[in-house]
Simulated assay, not measured.
Amino acid sequence: MASSSRNDTNVVCCYAHPDAPLVEDYRAGDQICSECGLVVGDRVIDVGSEWRTFSNEKGGVDPSRVGGPENPLLGGSDLSTIIGPGTGAASFDAFGTPKYQNRRTTNNSDRTLRNALREISAMADRINLPATIIDRTNILFKQVHDGKNLKGRANDAIASACLYIACRQEGVPRTFKEICAVSKISKKEIGRCFKLILKALETSVDLITTGDFMSRFCATLGLPNMVQRAATVIAKKAGEIDIVPGRSPISIAAAAIYMASQASDQKKSQKEIGDIAGVADVTIRQSYKLMYPHAAKLFPTDFKFTTPIDQLPQL
């Protein structure tokens, strides 16, 4: 190897051609003078990504030296070495048993966490939740698991309740029925775990309002912005003048959507709205009956009626 210094700085260059650019041979790890071919630097480390992969090889084994990303929720289990299956005669003893085997170093705690995180990711994918909610759900489950606050409860129920809490804390709440639809747990069990987790972690969630669900329900039903805006105003005014006491925000939102749609040319039935909102037809009907006598005060002033208020359904 030959090198020299230019301008009193430690710069590797060819002594015969100090101004010639160097060519890097990444395969050999050498730096070569572009003028005379002299190797002026060797053992250069390639810090780039290893793009070569063997995942399409037979057997489904990928011997790539680049492992998966480290998971901070697991207790150092990512820093393990996996020994591939032996193929030569030297890999087996006289009885045909592999000489080198993977030791089962994953403890029960990490195994439980892995299964729960996998289930959380699967549930979130079914209802198209973003990665931020998945991360918050994973952290909540990790806190509950480490604190051992819900002993005796199924991990699937805890994971479902953590997903429900994460959705509300991130400002995109989902109903209990929506969480039940993507999990194997009943609404009653998720509700119990939800209360226990809030108490154990000493955390809280914001109260849900009709506005949290209105845009999503109307978009799923294919209603125009005019109907969505009217339904939002109707639900808000109904809550302000307290004409639907004791009713859940979801049932109020569903009844408001029904009233606004019936007054427009995009009419939706109670069953159509109930299937999307997860509310029974009788629940929508009961809330609508309370709101109907005050319909003239609930609609926004600029709403364009296709069906006048006096011709709205009287259930």
Rank of each mutant, 00 (worst) to 15 (best):
K184E: 12
C180H: 10
T203M: 11
Y164Q: 13
S204C: 05
K187D: 06
I179T: 02
D206N: 02
E202S: 14
F176E: 06
A200W: 04
E189Q: 15
I197V: 04
C162W: 03
L198E: 13
C167G: 02
K177F: 06
I179S: 04
K177N: 12
R192N: 11
K177G: 09
K184A: 15
C162Y: 03
L207M: 12
V205K: 05
L198D: 02
I197D: 01
C180M: 11
V205W: 03
C193P: 01
L196E: 15
T175E: 10
G171R: 06
R174T: 02
E202Q: 15
C180Q: 12
T203N: 08
K188N: 11
V205D: 00
K195C: 13
D206Y: 04
R174Q: 14
K199P: 02
R168F: 06
D206T: 01
I179N: 07
S204N: 06
G171P: 01
C167K: 00
A200I: 08
R174F: 04
L207E: 09
K177D: 11
Y164N: 05
T175Q: 10
L163R: 05
A166C: 05
E178N: 14
K199L: 13
S186T: 11
V172N: 12
S183L: 13
K177E: 07
I197F: 02
C193M: 00
S204G: 00
V182P: 01
E170F: 06
R174I: 01
G171M: 00
Q169K: 12
A166N: 04
I185Y: 14
F194C: 10
A181V: 00
Y164I: 05
V182F: 05
Q169I: 03
K199C: 06
G171D: 05
L198G: 01
I197P: 00
K199S: 09
K177I: 11
V205M: 08
Y164C: 03
L201R: 09
S183I: 08
C162H: 02
S183C: 05
C167E: 10
I197R: 03
T175W: 04
K188P: 13
L196R: 15
L201T: 03
K195T: 13
L198R: 11
V172C: 10
R168M: 13
I185T: 15
A181W: 08
